[in-house]
Design a protein around this nucleic acid. Structure first.
Length: 570
RNA sequence: GUUUCCGUAGCUCAGUAGGAUAGAGCGACCGCCUCCUAAGCGGUAGGUCGGCAGUUCGAUUCUGCCCGGGAACACCA
């Protein structure tokens, strides 16, 4: 699409002795459009050109050759050069681009030929899928969609927590009291009860903890009883998780969890050992990271010679590098794990992998979901299960539909889209690093800056288009009809879509898109309120309908990137 | 204690890799449905951008210190 900044930079570059690229970098969008569509602050050049900013600005203004088809006027305010674009050009540019790209508008091919692995969701087997896992699932899925939209080949991996000492604990608990619980009937809840109970027992009796650790060791060594139990727990849990994934619409390209790497860890240990990076400490094998500025060493093998989370992550890095040839490998987890990934990424540099891979390792941390009373913990038994939240969201959405639009067809389906949309949007609307205190009414709020608000605005655009039957041809649209302040404001927002997606990818921050969609929806909503769209004046009507069409397209497309579905009616 | 993240309106948060009068939503108060869905729109009230220095023509944004809060810190993941 036409790059306005570049066009302006070209013109300015002809008048002053600064290169175009640098100028382009300085050009900004004023916060108030009364100060122009773009603005060039001349302060930055004052030193370089040894001139007062205002003089520079005036100088540029006096000498610049402006093409009236591109720039309407230029003002000098303080040290700023405020540039007002030709409004017809803005309208024309956006209209033509949308007409050409339709639902592909905003896509790009910057990712063509590049592979990105995204490791997300990763719930722990035999533990409830709680609200804390929602964030990883939802943020990961959004990043997946965003990168795909930018042309990358993306591999979504659900790195299941299906291995480790916790299974040693479960096995021990099952051995001790298995007959007291009906695992087949309600797997996760019953297993959780066992898990809580065994943890209590471990606290009281050190030998029980020792037995648990040994169970995991046995599991790694292939002990038939342990393996059989582990398999059973895993299967039952996955079935339960699938219910949540179905509600959220989550899909993964790979379900290779931690256990998948059980036979791939010896290579990690051997490589580290042969490079002389492995040292013994307190009976365990570790990699010392003092030199890297990390005071805690990375444990590769425990003193009972079983492996750790880190070892499995290292094996996964080797495997993913070979299998997917990744340019980036992104880990979406809570910020509790920053140290862990810092360690793992440092140790990965000792695995003899190409720099391409070790440089592509990225941890994307997010804040925690807390209860008003503090942290959630499976062991404390105070978790809020995600399935309950999603079902509550759907049920509340249904109540509102019943109240606002009782005539609606397929209420169930719409309630699901709206309820789930609210939950997803709530999680993606703020910077991911922020902690979130769980509150039913906040999470399931359907008013203001929420998922349903976006959906509602989409539904409005859709109703209009449905009523009118067909979208007018771009060629028949009178550009002047859309050059007023409000319309230009909306068009400029639409123009930014691709830029916003790139930013979101660059920072691995889906909330940038959420904010953008809220802005767009608000702008359109104001317009909708002040103007009738289906009017008698044919020219005006066509232009407004096309604007409505464009807004709807972006809202739908943007919501989809976030993993939110848009119903046609609600 | 060490490391790290956070601190903007009563509450929840935006603030575009330093810029022109700091913006939304919720809550409060006041308006708007004979008109394309009021899950909406408009308005009023509400701010020493945690504090102090420094860098700069210019700091909510960068640096340092301090205060307040969260998190991590070897056999959990």
């Amino acid at each position: 699409m036409t790059d306005f900044k570049k066009m302006i930079a070209e013109m300015i570059a002809k008048v002053i002795n600064i290169n175009e690229e640098e100028i382009k970098e300085y050009i900004e969008i004023p916060k108030d459009s009364s100060m122009g569509d773009y603005s060039f602050p001349c302060f930055k050049l004052a030193k370089e050109l040894r001139k007062a900013p205002v003089a520079i600005a005036n100088d540029i203004k006096d000498n610049i050759q402006i093409d009236k088809n591109i720039i309407e006027k230029i003002d000098v305010v303080n040290g700023y050069l405020n540039i007002y674009l030709n409004r017809k050009l803005i309208v024309k540019t956006v209209l033509e681009e949308i007409d050409k790209e339709k639902e592909n508008y905003g896509k790009s091919n910057i990712g063509t030929g590049k592979n990105i692995v995204i490791d997300y969701s990763a719930p722990n087997i035999a533990k409830p899928f709680h609200i804390g896992h929602l964030r990883s699932t939802v943020i990961g899925a959004a990043l997946y969609n965003i990168y795909k939209f930018l042309g990358y080949n993306v591999i979504g991996v659900n790195h299941l927590g299906d291995y480790g000492t916790q299974f040693g604990k479960l096995i021990e608990g099952y051995k001790l009291w298995g007959t007291e619980y009906d695992i087949e009937k309600d797997p996760i809840n019953e297993l959780t009860k066992i898990y809580i109970r065994i943890n209590e027992a471990c606290k009281e009796d050190e030998t029980i903890l020792e037995n648990c650790r040994n169970n995991f060791k046995k599991l790694e060594d292939g002990d038939p009883y342990c393996v059989e139990l582990w398999k059973k727990f895993r299967e039952l849990s996955l079935k339960e998780f699938q219910k949540v994934y179905d509600l959220l619409g989550s899909k993964f390209d790979s379900w290779n969890g931690e256990s998948f790497y059980s036979d791939k860890m010896p290579e990690v240990i051997e490589t580290l050992s042969s490079k002389g990076k492995l040292t013994e400490s307190q009976g365990a094998k570790i990699v010392d990271l003092e030199e890297q500025g990390i005071t805690t060493p990375c444990i590769i093998e425990k003193s009972n010679s079983s492996t750790t989370y880190a070892t499995r992550d290292l094996a996964a890095i080797m495997y993913r590098a070979r299998t997917y040839d990744f340019d980036k490998c992104i880990y979406v987890t809570s910020y509790e794990q920053v140290l862990h990934f810092k360690q793992v990424f440092e140790v990965a540099k000792f695995l003899g992998l190409d720099e391409k891979y070790t440089k592509g390792l990225i941890h994307v941390p997010f804040g925690m979901v807390l209860l008003p009373t503090g942290k959630m913990s499976t062991r404390e038994g105070n978790v809020i299960k995600l399935e309950d939240i999603l079902n509550e969201a759907i049920s509340r959405a249904k109540d509102i539909i019943e109240q606002k639009n009782p005539e609606l067809d397929n209420k169930e389906e719409v309630a699901k889209k709206v309820g789930i949309g609210a939950v997803i949007f709530n999680d993606l609307s703020n910077n991911r690093i922020k902690d979130e205190v769980f509150d039913w009414d906040t999470m399931l709020n359907f008013q203001g800056e929420t998922g349903p608000y976006i959906q509602y605005m989409y539904v409005r655009t859709n109703s209009i288009l449905e009523k009118i039957g067909q979208i007018p041809d771009v060629k028949d649209i009178e550009l002047e009809e859309l050059t007023n302040d409000t319309c230009i404001d909306i068009l400029k927002q639409i123009y930014l879509f691709n830029d916003i997606i790139m930013q979101a990818a660059d920072k691995n921050e889906p909330s940038i898109i959420s904010r953008y969609l809220i802005d767009l929806a608000q702008k359109f909503s104001s317009f909708y309120n002040d103007n009738k769209i289906i009017v008698d004046d044919e020219k005006q009507k066509n232009a407004r309908i096309y604007l409505t069409y464009m807004v709807g397209l972006i809202l739908k497309s943007g919501a989809k990137l976030l993993g939110i579905e848009t119903p046609n009616k609600m």
